[in-house]
């Protein structure tokens, strides 16, 4: 089971990174989603995989899953939603302002000097 879990996380990472490197905004957002899944699962798995032992105190239970990574990941899921939302709205706003959804701006490069003396 561990191998399946790890390879699934790896697959989602690969898909996320690949989409992240695209030139348009929307694939980047979808890529971020994939990457978030992978990262959250990774964090969650640092508590190791346990079957049927939720961290809810119960007189009959002898073993509990690690609650700490779960608490971390719970907030991470909500925050990654907020970050996705910011990205999407930025992408949307950028497209509406410029009519273009490329992620590469024109070169700011050499004439982008600071203020002269």
């Amino acid at each position: 089971m561990e191998a399946l879990f790890a390879s699934a996380v790896g697959a989602m990472t690969a898909a996320g990174v690949y989409l992240l490197l695209q030139a348009r905004t929307f694939p980047v957002v979808v890529g971020i989603s994939f990457l978030s899944y992978a990262v959250n699962l990774f964090l969650f798995a640092t508590g190791r995989l346990v079957n049927g032992a939720p961290p809810v105190i119960d007189a009959g239970a002898a073993v509990y899953a690690d609650p700490l990574p779960q608490a971390l990941v719970l907030t991470a899921i909500v925050i990654s939603f907020a970050m996705t939302a910011i990205l999407v709205v930025l992408a949307l706003r950028g497209f509406l302002e410029s009519g273009d959804d490329q992620v590469a701006a024109g070169r700011l490069g050499s004439d982008g000097k600071g203020e002269g003396p």
Binding site: A6, A11, T13
Partner: peptide, 10 residues
């Protein structure tokens, strides 16, 4: 990246 993350997690 995917292979690395997967291997590390395993």
């Amino acid at each position: 990246a995917g292979a690395g993350v997967g291997a590390a997690l395993y």
